[in-house]
Amino acid sequence: MKLAVQVNEGPYQHQASDSAYHFTKAALEGGHDVFRVFFYHDGVLNGTRLTTPPQDDRNIVKRWVELAEKYDLDLVLCVAAAQRRGIVDDGEAERNGKDATNIAPKFRISGLGQLIEAAIQCDRLVVFGD
C-alpha cells in the first residue's frame, strides 16, 4: 500500500511523533511504500538538529533521520508552520535574513502543496495528533 503520514505535534510534548515513527517504521519493514511524512503545526519541531534530549531517553529527531537514511524517506516540514516556529534551512535563512539554520539532515522545508499532493497520490493519509 502507498501511504502518506502527517505529524501534527511536536516531539516529547506529545505521543504523536512517537506513534507516527513506529507506524512508519512498521509500514516500511512490512514492505509498504511511504511516499512522504509531512510535519505540520508544532510537528515541524521534529525537524531541528539542535534537539538535545537526556542520554537515557529516545532521540526522536535522530530516529527520524536514521529511518530516512535507511529507506530514503521524504521528510517534509511545512514552510509556513516552520517560519512561525523558527525552523530554518539555508534557503529560508537567506530569504528571511536569519543568522543561523537548525534543520536536521534528511528533512526539507516545502509548501502545503506537498501534503495535498501526498493525499492525492496515496491510498491512505494517516494523521497523527490530537
Binding site: Y40, H41, A80, A81, G111, L112, G113, I116, E117, I120
Partner: peptide, 19 residues
C-alpha cells in the same frame, strides 16, 4: 489553538489542486 487557522491555510493552498 492554531489548528483552525492552519487548517484553513491547507484549504486555501489546496484549492489549486482542483479536488
Amino acid at each position: 489553538t492554531i489548528y483552525a487557522w492552519e487548517s484553513l491555510e491547507v484549504v486555501l493552498i489546496g484549492a489549486a489542486f482542483d479536488q
